[in-house]
Amino acid sequence: MPETLHVAKAELVARALAQMNGELTEQQWSEKQKLALTCRILFDGGHDSGLAGQITARAPEAETFYTQPFGHGFDEITASNLLQVNQDLKTLDGKGMPNPANRFHTWIYRARPDVNCIIHTHPRFVSALSTLEVPLVVSHMDLCPLYDDCAFLERWPGIPVGNEEGEIISGALGQKRAILLAHHGMLVTGKTVEEACVLALLMERAARMQLTAMAAGDMKPIAPELGKEAHDWISTPKRDAVTFGYFARRALPHHEGCLQ
């Protein structure tokens, strides 16, 4: 006879989380390898837009971070061609220069000690949604890691090369993990590279679903308490790591050299 059919939902959730944390395994990659994998995963996921977009992660040395060299597409990034730069965007290690738009990453890292990875891209559906000057609407269970966790900057401040844009974007982001930038694109943050990568893929999917739903009718909200419950259930460090592992396994056969 089954033994769990009368167990309360909260207890079942706790048991499942404990089992996931105890039994699911994570692949061990270096920070640079995870960053290179993220570039390739996002390229395959439609986040490539020529030379636009930046992906960064904190480096071990204080006030420095890794990023891709300007002039390279996401599909060209490897662990060995990443740069290490300081908060003035001076290259400390590696060959090349960073994207000048990395300046607003500096502002976010300074404002958010909890953030260890930032992804900013201009994918197709996020970019289309951004032109409507409406916030992202989370109205589906799968998208709930973004529930009440995506800010909105409704006024485009221009190219994000100056310190003003850094102040505006970091201020609009606040303590949330993601932000939709009107007439621009998206930005997500994570305590880990894995978390940020998963959120970036999810945000493009959310924008695509929103545009599709808006074309059919009015989107209906989900109950706040259920949105928060799904947010906390889906978005955990273990689940992010395991999901990232799946995306990496899917990408590696087509991007064999990125770990070098």
Rank of each mutant, 00 (worst) to 15 (best):
residue 47 H to S: 03
residue 118 I to Y: 06
residue 84 Q to R: 15
residue 33 Q to R: 11
residue 48 D to W: 01
residue 131 T to R: 13
residue 73 G to V: 01
residue 32 K to L: 14
residue 32 K to M: 08
residue 20 M to A: 14
residue 68 Q to W: 00
residue 36 A to W: 14
residue 126 V to W: 01
residue 37 L to Y: 07
residue 27 Q to M: 14
residue 134 V to N: 08
residue 54 Q to Y: 07
residue 110 R to Q: 15
residue 57 A to Q: 01
residue 16 A to V: 06
residue 135 P to G: 12
residue 36 A to R: 14
residue 85 V to P: 05
residue 56 T to L: 08
residue 126 V to G: 06
residue 103 R to F: 08
residue 122 H to N: 09
residue 98 P to H: 07
residue 112 R to G: 12
residue 125 F to M: 14
residue 122 H to P: 03
residue 15 R to F: 14
residue 103 R to D: 01
residue 40 R to A: 11
residue 21 N to H: 06
residue 33 Q to I: 04
residue 13 V to L: 10
residue 140 H to C: 01
residue 107 W to Y: 10
residue 62 A to N: 05
residue 32 K to P: 07
residue 51 L to V: 13
residue 137 V to G: 02
residue 130 S to F: 11
residue 38 T to M: 03
residue 78 T to Y: 09
residue 30 S to F: 08
residue 45 G to H: 09
residue 117 C to R: 07
residue 76 E to P: 02
residue 85 V to G: 10
residue 97 M to I: 10
residue 79 A to T: 13
residue 52 A to N: 03
residue 117 C to V: 12
residue 61 E to L: 12
residue 135 P to W: 08
residue 102 N to P: 00
residue 138 V to R: 07
residue 99 N to W: 04
residue 71 G to K: 05
residue 126 V to T: 15
residue 46 G to E: 10
residue 110 R to S: 10
residue 62 A to V: 09
residue 136 L to N: 04
residue 75 D to W: 11
residue 72 H to F: 15
residue 80 S to V: 04
residue 62 A to E: 14
residue 134 V to A: 14
residue 56 T to G: 05
residue 101 A to K: 01
residue 49 S to I: 00
residue 87 Q to F: 15
residue 54 Q to W: 00
residue 126 V to D: 01
residue 121 T to F: 05
residue 70 F to T: 03
residue 48 D to T: 09
residue 115 V to P: 03
residue 30 S to V: 06
residue 81 N to D: 05
residue 21 N to Y: 02
residue 46 G to M: 14
residue 105 H to F: 13
residue 90 K to V: 10
residue 33 Q to F: 07
residue 44 D to I: 04
residue 41 I to N: 05
residue 61 E to C: 04
residue 31 E to Q: 14
residue 137 V to P: 00
residue 51 L to G: 02
residue 125 F to R: 12
residue 15 R to H: 15
residue 45 G to T: 08
residue 105 H to Q: 12
residue 143 L to E: 15
residue 123 P to C: 08
residue 124 R to T: 15
residue 46 G to D: 13
residue 89 L to G: 06
residue 40 R to V: 03
residue 78 T to S: 15
residue 95 K to M: 04
residue 72 H to P: 00
residue 20 M to R: 15
residue 56 T to C: 07
residue 131 T to I: 12
residue 104 F to R: 10
residue 37 L to K: 04
residue 142 D to G: 11
residue 127 S to L: 11
residue 59 A to D: 03
residue 29 W to C: 08
residue 64 T to H: 07
residue 33 Q to H: 04
residue 46 G to I: 14
residue 35 L to P: 04
residue 14 A to I: 01
residue 122 H to K: 09
residue 42 L to C: 13
residue 119 I to N: 03
residue 57 A to N: 05
residue 72 H to G: 00
residue 64 T to E: 13
residue 26 E to L: 15
residue 36 A to T: 02
residue 42 L to D: 03
residue 49 S to Q: 10
residue 14 A to R: 13
residue 41 I to Y: 06
residue 132 L to K: 11
residue 60 P to G: 11
